[in-house]
Design a protein around this nucleic acid. Structure first.
Length: 281
DNA sequence: TCTATTTGACCGCT
DNA sequence: AGCGGTCAAATAGA
């Protein structure tokens, strides 16, 4: 036992340098993500200020998704770093730790042998409950299964990232209705996206021939007016996805026509794309 | 014809 | 044996 503890502490000391370097790069990543999110938010505001009359709901939603993606990545990095530090702290200090997290994340130990009893019990996951199922959360998902779960009236749908093969992204999610009245859906995310959203967008077909169906989204650098930096131009084919104008009139808050996660991101910024620029001013 | 979804079968674990 | 998770052939739809 004593020998086991000594060797464990040795490993911890040897890992310290490596961990500090990792933390630095993590901070850099978080900073880059947040800067990118800030740029997208600025771009979103510009669109809303200058193009309120035209139907640019898709640009707004995609920008909001980009903002959400930036924050999701940043949170994931911070939670990882935090968990790592807590593991170290717990091994070095026996005092109890505050286990509260922004996102629910399982830290239950993996079975060394044997099959996991469920994904929830064995891997890190984040669970989200909402009145509507989350289908559009900024990532592309591919459904690979649906199953009736025992002790549940509703089927569970299994999704994996559409870039599982292309980019070896192992992110998965499960969507299941957990309550009828009022309707409540549980969306559980497993693993983290290793795919890049912008890479995903780059695989969209670029069709400059049909300007009516295509819209340009530019993620400009803050100094974009000086053209010192090359803009990252993403062209999205928008078909059957634009929000019907009559719906736009009915909906009063982003959460009514966006996925709840995207809406949360939008509302967190105090934006309401359904409003006009005059409402904002 | 191509791509995404559906669904029954299969696998590995308890 | 029964369960949850995944695979892959069949099917649907654009």
């Amino acid at each position: 036992m004593k020998r086991h503890i000594t060797s464990y502490l040795l490993v911890n000391n040897l890992d310290l340098d490596k961990r500090q370097r990792t933390m630095k790069s993590s901070q850099q990543k978080v900073m880059e993500n947040l800067l990118h999110g800030h740029e997208c938010a600025n771009q979103l505001r510009l669109i809303m200020d200058h193009h309120a009359e035209s139907d640019l709901s898709m640009e707004r939603e995609d920008l909001a998704k980009s903002v959400l993606h930036c924050f999701t990545d940043s949170l994931s990095i911070l939670i990882d770093t935090n968990d790592h530090n807590q593991d170290v702290d717990q091994s070095n200090n026996s005092s109890p730790q505050d286990s509260s997290h922004v996102l629910e994340s399982s830290r239950k130990p993996l079975h060394k042998r044997g099959r996991k009893t469920s994904m929830v019990e064995s891997s890190d996951y984040r669970r989200h409950e909402s009145p509507n199922p989350i289908y559009h959360d900024g990532f592309l998902w591919r459904k690979y299964g649906q199953k009736q779960i025992k002790e549940s009236d509703h089927q569970r749908s299994y999704y994996k990232c559409a870039y599982t093969v292309d980019q070896k992204c192992e992110a998965k999610k499960q969507v299941q209705m957990i309550q009828n009245n009022p309707p409540l859906y549980s969306t559980t995310y497993f693993g983290r996206h290793t795919c890049q959203l912008h890479q995903a967008f780059e695989t969209f077909p670029i069709d400059t021939s049909d300007s009516q169906d295509s819209h340009m989204i530019r993620f400009d650098h803050p100094d974009s007016s000086t053209h010192q930096h090359q803009n990252q131009i993403i062209q999205l084919k928008v078909e059957q996805m634009t929000m019907p104008s009559e719906k736009a009139e009915e909906w009063s808050s982003p959460s009514e026509y966006m996925s709840s996660e995207v809406a949360c991101a939008v509302e967190a910024f105090g934006f309401n794309p359904a409003r006009t620029s005059s409402d904002l001013s």
